[in-house]
Design a protein around this nucleic acid. Sequence first.
DNA 1: TCTCCTCGAGATCT
DNA 2: CTCGAGGAGA
Length: 314
Amino acid sequence: MEIIFKTSNQRKYKGKSLISFPDSYCIIDLETTGLDPFFDRIIEVSAIKICNGNIIDKFTSLANIDNDELSSFITQLTGITTEMLIDAPNLNDVLSEFIDFIGDNIIIGHNANFDINFIYDNCMTLLNKPFTNDFIDTLRLARRLLPELKNHKLVTLANNYNINYSNAHRALSDCEITYNCYINLKNEALQKYGSIDAFINSCKYHNLKVSEITTSKTEFDTSNPFYNKVCVFTGKLDKMTRANAAQMVVDLGGICNNSITQKTDYLILGNTDYAKNVKDGKTAKLKKAQNLILNGSELEIITENVFYEMLSNI
DNA sequence: TCTCCTCGAGATCT
DNA sequence: CTCGAGGAGA
């Protein structure tokens, strides 16, 4: 049996994936012989250059694959045939021109990592330099802006915005489709979030703050065990999310907090097996709670199951 | 409070 | 790859 070890491709100088909506950029798309940059080859390269919101230039070229036979699957998918590639220029030359065309523009593509990885690896081997441009992925934007869609394939996005998809799967056509999607996604961000900045902010890392959870209830059963009690969670609950559990506590007139203090009444223990960075199987919150108890605090440490039993007895 | 880490789950590109 | 859930540490 033959075992093939893939070289570790770290792509150390690869650009960053950005969430932003610039007015100057290059849309790119590739057609290739398959999905894997290590085994497969680029057969078509296209780009559209946009400056201050206007299309100012386009680039497209096929690239030969040394008279290799193109698979029928790719021919059927793209319409590109083996014959069409025979007289095409070498990828080496195509790539040089392409890199010049792109310059230091921000790249935009649908599932941009796919194209960027192919370009990066071929730049390394053919031109002996990395491809470092930052990029914007319309797939990533679409997942954020259109979570209601079934999926976020380019065809689905195009249908959603009534964009003509009939010439899809040739590189320049896909660039045009991606361009139209990008314009629409920008509008989507404005409409759904009020401003581009508001959307970008919503993408930033966001911790669950259980202390900020509110309730619509106005009257509480003051005899329930959570009423006016301060609860803290640690670990991952098996049967519900922490947000849901915290909501139940708050709905009973309880208070949730993110850290253990003198005022904490209950520490609810979830599962910490998954967390490899937890030493001794004890989270920082559990250790702190145990110390407080040793010093005479009334704080109670309860398991997830006990927590549910207390809830079901109400 | 903010930043960075880890893990598992779920997609998309030709 | 990216995201969400959650932890650790400054």
